[in-house]
Design a protein around this nucleic acid. Structure first.
Length: 396
DNA sequence: TGGGGTTAT
DNA sequence: ATAACCC
C-alpha cells in the first residue's frame, strides 16, 4: 500500500482539464460561524467552526496498480487501455505527450515506445480502491468515495482533539499553509448552459445575478453552484460504506443478434454473481442497459429493470445451485422488452446491474442497529468485509 | 470516449 | 426509467 502514490497537491489543479472547483477541499467559509455541526459540539475558543476535510486523490490510479502488479513496467511509459482508448497513463507517458482518454493510434503515434496493458477488467482496481478507503477509514469513519481513486475524509474531530492536546506555546507556533486553485466552471451540461448565459469563469459566476441564475437553472442548482463559486461547500462528507450496486458492462462495435447478446449477457452476469457472492448481501433488483448504435446521441442509454424473484434470491449464496439460468432468462425478457428482435438492430453496449442490495436476515438476538455481514466463518480468506449499516432493515 | 459509480427527478 | 453528475 505504501507504494501507492498520492497526487502532489500542487499538481491537483493544473494537471487536469477538469474543474478544480470539485477538487478543492470542501471547506466551509468562516461566515458559516454560528451553525453547530451534527454532533453539536462546543467549538473551542480561537478556532472557527470550519471543518477539516482531506481530499485524497490517487495519481493515475490504474497505471499505478499495474506498475505494482508488474514492477518491470516502472520507468517505462505505460498506458492502460480499454477498447481503443488509453484511459490513463503514468507520468513517463505523459511527459512524452500521451493524454488521458487519447485513442490508441494517436498515443502510439505520439509515443511509439508506449507500453499498453489492458484495463478492461476492473477487479484489481476495485480491490485496491477499497483497500485505500479502508485505510483512510482508520483515521475517521467518515470517508466518502468518488469514483475509484478519490476519497474525502472528514478529519474535523481528529483535528479538534489534537488541538486540545497542544500547549499554548505550541499552539502559537502553529502555522497553516495552503493554496487556492484557479478554477474553471463545473459539469458538462451545466457548463454549456452557463456559457449560453455568458458565464465562462468562476468570477463570472460569482458576480452573476442570483435571481436570473435561479430562473435559468432552478433554485437548487443555482444556489449550490453559486456558493461553490465562492469556495463555499457545506455539503456533508457522506460515508460511502459498501456499494449500492454492482454492474458490469461491455462495449463493442456491433451486436446484432439475440444469441450474440445472450452470450455477452452471460459473461457479464457470471462475473457479477461472483462479486455479489463475495459481498454477502443479496440484490433484489436486476437491470439491463443497452446503447443503440446511432451517429449522434451516443451517450444515451435505455434500461429495463425488474425485481429478482425471491426463490432466485434464496439460491444466490449457495454455490451448487444454478442461478445463472433463471437470471439469464429474466435478462433476456428485459432484452426483448427493449429490442424488437424480429427487426434488425445494432447495439454498441450491454450492461447488467444488480442493485437494491439487502443484508441477510442473520440478526444477532435483538441487536437492531449494529450487526455484521454474515462472514465466511472465521477462515476468512474471503473477500467479504464486515461493515456497519447506516440504516437497517433486514430482509431475507 | 471506457467501465464504472451516485443522486435527483 | 431517465437524466444529470462524478471519476
Amino acid at each position: 500500500m505504501e507504494q501507492l502514490g498520492v497526487e502532489p497537491e500542487e499538481e491537483a489543479g493544473r494537471d487536469e482539464e477538469e474543474d478544480a472547483a470539485q477538487a478543492m477541499e470542501r471547506a466551509e467559509a468562516g461566515e458559516a460561524g454560528g451553525s453547530p455541526g451534527v454532533h453539536d459540539q462546543v467549538v473551542p475558543e480561537g478556532s472557527s467552526s470550519s471543518r477539516v476535510i482531506a481530499h485524497v486523490d490517487l495519481d493515475c490510479f490504474y497505471a499505478q496498480v499495474e506498475m505494482i502488479s508488474n514492477p518491470e513496467l516502472k520507468g517505462k511509459p505505460l498506458g492502460v487501455q480499454q477498447k481503443y482508448l488509453v484511459v490513463t497513463c503514468n507520468y513517463e507517458a505523459r511527459k512524452l505527450g500521451v493524454k488521458k482518454l487519447m485513442n490508441v493510434r494517436d498515443a502510439k503515434e505520439k509515443c511509439p515506445q508506449l507500453v499498453l496493458v489492458n484495463g478492461e477488467d476492473l477487479t484489481r482496481y476495485r480491490e485496491m480502491s477499497y483497500k485505500v478507503t479502508e485505510l483512510l477509514e482508520e483515521f475517521s469513519p467518515v470517508v466518502e468515495r468518488l469514483g475509484f481513486d478519490e476519497n474525502f475524509v472528514d478529519l474535523t474531530e481528529m483535528v479538534e482533539k489534537r488541538l486540545q492536546q497542544l500547549q499554548s506555546d505550541e499552539l502559537s507556533a502553529l502555522t497553516v499553509s495552503g493554496h487556492v486553485y484557479n478554477n474553471q466552471c463545473i459539469g458538462y451540461k451545466t457548463a454549456k448552459r452557463l456559457e449560453a448565459l455568458g458565464i465562462s469563469s468562476v468570477h463570472d459566476l460569482q458576480t452573476f445575478s442570483p435571481k436570473i441564475l435561479e430562473k435559468e437553472l432552478g433554485i437548487s442548482v443555482a444556489q449550490r453552484i453559486q456558493k461553490l463559486s465562492f469556495g463555499e461547500d457545506t455539503s456533508p462528507v457522506t460515508p460511502s460504506g459498501p456499494p449500492q450496486s454492482f454492474s458490469e458492462e461491455d462495449s463493442f462495435k456491433k451486436c446484432s443478434s439475440e444469441v450474440e447478446a445472450k452470450n455477452k449477457i452471460e459473461e457479464l452476469l457470471a462475473s457479477l454473481l461472483n462479486r455479489v457472492c463475495q459481498d454477502g448481501r443479496k440484490p433484489h433488483t436486476i437491470r439491463l442497459t443497452i446503447r443503440r448504435y446511432s451517429s449522434e446521441n451516443h451517450c444515451s442509454r435505455e434500461s429495463r429493470q425488474c425485481p429478482i424473484p425471491s426463490h432466485v434470491i434464496q439460491k444466490l449464496g449457495t454455490g451448487n445451485c444454478d442461478v445463472m439460468t433463471p437470471m439469464v432468462d429474466i435478462l433476456m425478457k428485459l432484452f426483448r422488452n427493449m429490442v424488437n428482435v424480429k427487426m434488425p438492430f445494432h447495439l454498441t453496449l450491454l450492461s447488467v446491474c444488480l442493485c437494491n442490495l439487502k443484508v441477510l436476515n442473520t440478526a444477532k438476538k435483538g441487536t437492531i442497529d449494529y450487526y455484521l455481514t454474515p462472514s465466511l466463518s472465521t477462515t476468512s480468506r474471503s473477500g467479504k468485509r464486515s461493515f456497519k449499516m447506516k440504516d437497517s432493515h433486514m430482509e431475507d
